[in-house]
Computed example of a mutant assay.
Amino acid sequence: MISATQPRGATGWALLIFALILAFLGLVLAAGGLWLVALGGSWYYLIAGLGLILSGVLMAKDSLTGVWLYLAVFAGTVIWAVWEVGLSPWELLPRVFGYIVLGVIVLLLLPTLKRRQATT
């Protein structure tokens, strides 16, 4: 891990901001998921939200584990979506598109995360 006093470049700040946004999105998803579970609905949203929160926190701390956790949440989302609606592209798209966009950003920030981890 990198100490809190190590300076961040532009990409380091982009990583931190993205990680915080990811954690916030997870918080919103988990809160809605908790309400849905209380109503007797699906546990998916609560679990995925908690995964995004933890992933964002780990990435904010410059941990590659956050990337692996994000990929696990993404894989779980794809499995859940296929289980729920089958292989219909029009029904799958709204369930996975946001995760794909976030995943592309995660992969774009991966070199920055690796570089920040390597300087410890």
Rank of each mutant, 00 (worst) to 15 (best):
D62P: 14
L93A: 14
L64F: 15
L107K: 00
V78A: 05
W83R: 02
L69V: 08
W83F: 09
W83G: 05
V96H: 08
W83S: 03
V106F: 04
L93H: 10
E91R: 14
W90K: 04
V85F: 01
I105G: 02
F74R: 03
L110M: 13
V82I: 12
V67L: 00
V85T: 01
R116C: 06
P111I: 13
L71H: 10
S63G: 14
P94Q: 06
G98E: 02
Y99E: 04
K61T: 10
W68N: 12
W90P: 12
T77Q: 12
V82T: 09
T77I: 08
G98T: 04
V73M: 09
G103C: 04
A72Y: 02
I105H: 05
V67I: 06
T112L: 13
G103K: 04
Y70T: 06
A81K: 07
L109F: 05
D62T: 15
W80H: 11
V101Y: 00
I105T: 07
A60P: 06
G76R: 00
L108M: 12
W68F: 13
V96S: 07
F74A: 11
I105V: 10
V106Q: 04
K114C: 05
V67C: 01
R115S: 14
V73C: 05
E91V: 12
L102G: 00
V101R: 00
K114N: 08
G86V: 12
G98V: 03
G98L: 08
L92G: 11
K114T: 05
V67H: 04
R116P: 12
T112P: 13
G76S: 03
P111G: 11
W68P: 14
L113E: 13
A75F: 10
